[in-house]
């Protein structure tokens, strides 16, 4: 099978000189979920920015297979190509749903936007599809015309997920998708996400400090510390038998907590 996303020695430092991340390499295959864990400041968010085309890395390359044409450097794409990618093949689930939703547009409009962005012009069909997706993320159909601000945090996050999945992306980036939610809400959201990711066969990169999230969602895991990957492998393997002292500390601290 051909890789969907490939990172080669990706590194980035900020204008102020602070290190974001350094020398990260991996390949992600269609349908695969990669977890990236580390504490805040470990460079995982910078890495996510580099992978998702938001931050141009100062070293290395990020390549993506858009439409089965083989791997192409994300940053050598023209701006319109990259923007098209972001509203078709890619989706980014933000930690704060306010950053990923249009708060002044109804839930249905939010979900329908990506369809309209690629040329859908039949209102009934757009609405039908929006309704279908809202149902799949367990939003009651009667709330399709409500504004996201009238929804709870967990519901907002689910609308955001529907808004992204409606365009059937091949790769989804998630930045702390359960951050800021109550524990019970987190569990339900994770369950839902796991089901959707499996059903759709969508690949994902999930960045989180929460080991429970990656244990449930990801096939493979990378542990980051001070901008570098200190350990990587199958999720169960890394979590059950961590090799690097930092991974051991991370796993044990969660267990104790």
């Amino acid at each position: 099978m051909n890789a969907l996303l490939e990172a080669q020695s990706v590194g980035h430092s900020y204008a102020g000189g602070q290190l974001g991340c350094e020398d990260v390499s991996f390949r992600l295959y269609p349908g695969e979920v990669l977890g990236v864990v580390g504490e805040s400041g470990s460079g995982k968010s910078t890495l996510l920015g580099c992978l998702s085309g938001m931050i141009e890395p100062s070293q290395g390359s990020v390549r993506f297979d858009a439409g089965g044409q083989g791997l192409r450097d994300v940053f050598s794409l023209s701006e319109p190509e990259r923007r098209l990618l972001m509203r078709t093949d890619w989706g980014i689930v933000r930690q704060n749903p306010r950053d990923g939703l249009r708060m002044n547009v109804s839930a249905g409009g939010n979900v329908g936007e990506r369809l309209m962005a690629v040329g859908a012009r039949n209102y009934t069909e757009i609405r039908g599809e929006a309704l279908d997706w809202l149902t799949r993320v367990e939003i009651p159909s009667g709330r399709i015309d409500d504004l996201p601000r009238t929804f709870s945090g967990g519901m907002q996050q689910r609308v955001q997920i529907a808004r992204i999945l409606v365009s059937k992306p091949r790769l989804v980036f998630m930045d702390e998708p359960t951050g800021g939610l109550d524990v019970s809400v987190q569990a339900r959201l994770l369950d839902l996400l796991r089901g959707l990711v499996r059903d759709l066969g969508v690949a994902a990169v999930v960045v989180t400090h929460d080991l429970a999230v990656v244990r449930l969602l990801s096939d493979r895991l990378m542990v980051m510390r001070q901008g570098r990957v200190v350990e990587s492998g199958l999720t169960d393997q890394v979590l059950d038998d961590p090799q690097h002292p930092y991974s051991q500390l991370l796993v044990s601290s969660v267990l104790q907590a």
Binding site: R83, R87, R102, G108, G109, G112, E113, M116, Y123, I144
Partner: peptide, 22 residues
């Protein structure tokens, strides 16, 4: 200017969608 340059006009229909739904 980018939205015009790249013909990214989906947003315009979101507005019309909102009108009809409301």
């Amino acid at each position: 200017r980018k939205l015009h340059a790249y013909s990214e006009y989906g947003l315009m229909h979101v507005k019309l969608y909102e009108d009809i739904s409301r």
